[in-house]
């Protein structure tokens, strides 16, 4: 993407190096702010469903998981989810290193870490799929446990999936030479987004597996 989005009509080629730099910094700051605000509103989206989950859960205390057809539903598989979480958090670490490598102009190292991140992300999704297949909690539409669990983790899963796509697109951009050592706003945004998805998972993990 060209930097001309913010002030349309002002492409990088219109101006000499110095002006160009200033425009770059200004538009980058604006986009960074916009992106952070977008993440804030995304936090509200998750918070709303987390509120819903807590509300529903509290409304049928003291039994949780709920009793359906005479049987209390099993708890979710915490051990497996913990393992899966490690995969996701690991991808956060690799993403961090990817960005650092980029800043230090270490392209091969960047590529390695970027792909590691993407694979770990996909691995997490695979683990999530495995868990969906094995969770005996009555499916999405069976009861409020299933409803809140699948809605929240599903929404998180979609975020991870979009994140993977995002990272992949960023990687292609880097191969096409869109970013330089000094201009890599897309990578910053991708990293922010990826860490954001991690943090949400911490909360979800606590709510569904530890509480």
């Amino acid at each position: 993407m060209a930097v001309s989005v913010a002030v349309h009509g002002h492409g990088p080629d219109d101006h000499g190096g110095h002006d160009d730099d200033i425009i770059y910094q200004e538009t980058r700051d604006m986009r960074l702010m916009g992106f952070v605000l977008f993440l804030v509103s995304d936090v509200v989206l998750f918070s709303s469903y987390i509120f819903a989950y807590i509300y529903l859960r509290n409304s049928i205390q003291p039994t949780w998981p709920p009793i359906v057809d005479g049987h209390q539903l099993p708890r979710l598989d915490t051990a497996f989810a913990a393992f899966n979480s490690v995969v996701l958090f690991g991808s956060g670490v690799t993403m961090h290193f990817a960005l650092e490598s980029w800043k230090h102009a270490n392209k091969p190292r960047f590529n390695t870490f970027m792909w590691l991140t993407i694979f770990l992300g996909l691995g997490f999704l695979g683990g999530q799929g495995y868990e969906y297949a094995h969770a005996q909690i009555g499916g999405w539409s069976g009861n409020i446990f299933g409803a809140s669990f699948f809605t929240l983790t599903g929404m998180h899963g979609i975020h991870v999936f979009l994140g993977v796509c995002f990272l992949f697109a960023l990687w292609i951009q880097t191969q096409r030479g869109v970013y330089t050592e000094h201009r890599f706003f897309g990578l910053t945004a991708g990293t922010l987004y990826w860490h954001f998805v991690d943090v949400i998972w911490v909360v979800l993990f606590f709510l569904f597996y530890l509480w």
Binding site: L37, F38, V40, S41, D42, V44, L45, S47, S48, Y49, A52, L56, I60, P66, W140, S141, N143, I144, G146, A147, S148, F150, T151
Partner: peptide
């Protein structure tokens, strides 16, 4: 950009409850 997202969440839940029968609001289903 903060409050509206909460509405989006509520609407999405209403929609999937109506269309897919996922229980959020129906007291008969918890």
């Amino acid at each position: 950009f903060i409050a509206t997202t909460a509405l989006g969440a509520a609407l999405a839940a209403l929609f999937i409850e109506r269309v897919f029968g996922v229980p959020f609001y129906d007291p008969k289903r918890g």
